[in-house]
Nucleic acid binder design. Structure first.
Lengths: 152, 152
DNA sequence: ATTGAAACAACTTGCAG
DNA sequence: CTGCAAGTTGTTTCAAT
């Protein structure tokens, strides 16, 4: 939120950028690279974590190597009285990765992954389609995907 | 891809799960937690990185605290002869975070973030809309968003 | 907030079994 | 894969600025 928006200086942004690119590099190495005192980098990172600007340290996993070879977006329309329970139901489906409540033609846009087209079809028609309150779905199978990190 | 799909055992998956949740925990601590010899955890992680199953160590940034308070999906239709240049053009827009080439009503689904509704409008109408080959766009402003990690 | 260094703690590698 | 030793490296603390 705007009111909670921390003032970040150039150094904070530089550190964020470096950690997004590679959070496994050690802080002494990082501080040498950006030519800033190690103690400062330590305390800046702690502050970024404390403020929640860094939400977590994690790894990016190649899900296709875990067998999830198909991904799709699904637009979902619901009975507006049942929006909340539909959201909960959708988030309970293991294949679902992201759900956005949106303006426009759909009520939700859902991103999900499946281990093949058959499983994708099954998830959409049997899992999403069967949730009470779901009135209509429209599927966009992703043939190719590119992503970028946050703009820092 | 299926042919390159590595065989991952329970231990590999457990390690991945732990690192997705928190990649800043040290390997000795992680190995104690899951009760596996430290040397084994070291070599498994190296193998996961070598195989590309772990794509990178990174941090998750709260972009709303960087001022990106508005996010949206945009469906894009293009002149099919100009698809490739449109893709390149869209990926060149700083606010764009993800682009998927999809089947169905749209040719692309684009996810982006902006620092306010005015900037969102500007990005869509002035940046995306002005790309040669873009014929139509449809905007879905995200009012609320939930995401989950990979299913491991 | 930053610096620099000391004291402390922890990680990483290599190897024999 | 195990367990450990040796070597290396990271982390905290603090007095001074």
């Amino acid at each position: 939120m705007d009111v909670n928006m921390a003032k970040l200086d150039e150094l904070d942004l530089k550190i964020l950028q470096e950690l997004v690119a590679d959070s496994s590099q050690s802080i002494p190495k990082l501080s040498k690279k950006i030519d800033v005192n190690t103690s400062v980098v330590y305390s800046r990172i702690k502050r970024l974590v404390r403020r929640g600007i860094i939400k977590r340290f994690t790894v990016e996993v190649d899900e296709s190597q875990l067998g999830y070879t198909v991904s799709a977006y699904v637009g979902v329309n619901t009975d507006s009285k049942k929006r909340d329970s539909v959201r909960t139901g959708i988030m309970g489906i293991p294949e679902v990765r992201e759900l956005a409540e949106v303006t426009g033609r759909f009520d939700f846009l859902v991103f999900l992954r499946a281990k093949g087209l058959e499983e994708l079809h099954n998830v959409i028609s049997q899992k999403i389609g069967m949730i009470d309150g779901v009135e209509h779905t429209e599927t966009f199978i992703s043939m190719r995907q590119e992503s970028k990190g946050p703009e820092i």
